[in-house]
């Protein structure tokens, strides 16, 4: 499999919402290339249709409970860690563009 370029790392950082500095891009590109080179060992089984994937150690089914009102955090508690709040709501920076 191919290695990873500096441009690809910049794209990944964008997808992952990390505003990386230029020197970080250089630093991480080399390291991620090494790591991806090593973990590519798993591809030996990529085409083995006889092996099903395992996503979880337990055979999971969704767990439901009766839909009834229970005690929960108060609005004050839920908002207690908010960087900014207004009118009992989380206050966030502008989401939509102005154009």
């Amino acid at each position: 499999m191919p290695g990873i370029s500096r441009e690809e790392v910049a794209h990944l950082a964008k997808l992952a919402r990390l505003e990386l500095k230029d020197e970080e891009l250089d630093h991480f590109a080399g390291q991620l290339d090494d790591i991806i080179g090593a973990v590519a060992a798993v591809s030996a089984v990529a085409d083995d249709a006889a092996v099903p994937p395992t996503s979880h150690p337990l055979p999971l089914t969704n767990v439901m409970r009766p839909d009834e009102v229970r005690p929960s955090l108060t609005p004050q508690q839920a908002l207690s860690g908010a960087p900014a709040q207004e009118q009992q709501r989380f206050k966030v920076p502008q989401i939509l563009g102005e154009e």
Binding site: E8, L12, L15, F28, I36, V42, V45, V51, T54
Partner: peptide, 29 residues
């Protein structure tokens, strides 16, 4: 940051089967 980017890479379309999908098969083995 390294791990978040590595995970983002492994789950990207085009790489998902080769990396994440294969890793899940190794997990079975």
């Amino acid at each position: 940051k390294r791990r978040v980017m590595l995970g983002t890479y492994a789950l990207s379309s085009g790489y998902y089967d080769a990396y994440y999908g294969s890793a899940q098969k190794v997990r079975t083995l």
